[in-house]
């Protein structure tokens, strides 16, 4: 069992949904970013997604795009991102960590080298936004062969006919994108989300986490009632942005800005009845 499988099994036994937090590696700088990463589990993050910054994040909204720009301008690279994971793993062998991003930086780093280094650093899974199942042999299959979970996005446009294609080779969990849109956009409708999660669960035993547009503890609680996990990203990187000084540098409040929000979200989720009972 992967760390992700173990964590979702544990969440099931606690009869609650998990909080999946997204921050961008290197935002606003490598040192602060590592401090945030290390503080996330204690604040209530059950699964950590870490964004690999990319210059052209086509599926992301302004908040995550700006987070990526902050990271890149502070000198973040793929090697530094993998090193961050390694340093996080030194102190935490339990919390699943998923790298999320776009294909080109991996392609340029070298697919085999990236996968080897990711496994060695302690990465548990990958979410690569612009690799559809039609291109599985390119990254997904080699990743799965090395024991990494390859987590696929399912969306409102993924109809029942296409869903098996998307679920094939997917492991760890399914990431349901709750809206047609970019990250951090309109809030999802909990009823529609519940119906969609049920639709996916009819086709797979994997846990389903829901993201895109979840910003507050209340929204997180509403989604948690229907899903196995709630992903929050834009709100967290916006909290980072709001804590920076006029020159864009991290201040004493930066780490706390993130962990306070994570605590709030985690409390919301833990207060929600879990309706999915997977």
């Amino acid at each position: 069992m992967s760390r992700i499988d173990t964590r979702f099994a544990q969440l099931r036994s606690e009869n609650r949904a998990g909080l999946v937090t997204f921050v961008t590696a290197g935002d606003p700088d490598a040192e602060t970013s590592l401090a945030i990463l290390k503080a996330l589990p204690e604040a209530g993050a059950d699964v950590i997604e870490m964004g690999m910054p990319f210059s052209d994040p086509m599926a992301d909204g302004p908040a995550i795009q700006l987070a990526g720009q902050r990271a890149l301008s502070s000198g973040q690279t793929m090697a530094k991102t993998l090193d961050m994971v390694r340093r996080f793993r030194d102190g935490d062998d339990q919390t699943p960590l998923v790298l999320m991003g776009y294909y080109n930086p991996i392609y340029i780093y070298g697919v085999d080298k990236f996968l080897d280094d990711a496994v060695a650093a302690g990465v548990d899974g990958l979410i690569i936004v612009d690799i559809p199942p039609e291109a599985d042999e390119e990254l997904c299959i080699p990743a799965v062969h090395r024991g990494l979970n390859f987590i696929r996005l399912a969306t409102p446009t993924t109809d029942d006919k296409r869903l098996p294609t998307v679920l094939n080779n997917t492991s760890g969990f399914v990431y349901y994108v709750s809206i047609t849109g970019i990250t951090g956009a309109a809030a999802p409708n909990p009823d529609e989300v519940a119906a969609s999660v049920a639709r996916i669960k009819a086709k797979t035993d994997l846990p389903v986490a829901v993201g895109f547009g979840v910003k507050t503890a209340g929204q997180a609680a509403a989604i948690a009632a229907a899903a196995d996990g709630v992903v929050v990203g834009s709100a967290l990187v916006s909290a980072i942005a709001g804590s920076l000084d006029d020159d864009g540098r991290a201040g004493p409040a930066t780490v706390g800005a993130v962990t306070d929000l994570v605590r709030d979200l985690a409390a919301g989720i833990r207060g929600a009845a879990n309706g999915s009972a997977a």
Binding site: M58, A59, Y103, V129, D130, I131, P132, E134, A135, R152, L153, A154, T155, P156, T157, T158, D159, R162, V166, V177, T180, G181
Partner: peptide
């Protein structure tokens, strides 16, 4: 699948894939 040799293809987010 839209390839010219190794070039081309369809590297898009799942939301766009059905489109």
């Amino acid at each position: 699948a839209g390839h010219f040799g190794i070039f081309g293809g369809r590297y898009v987010a799942e939301t766009l894939m059905p489109l």
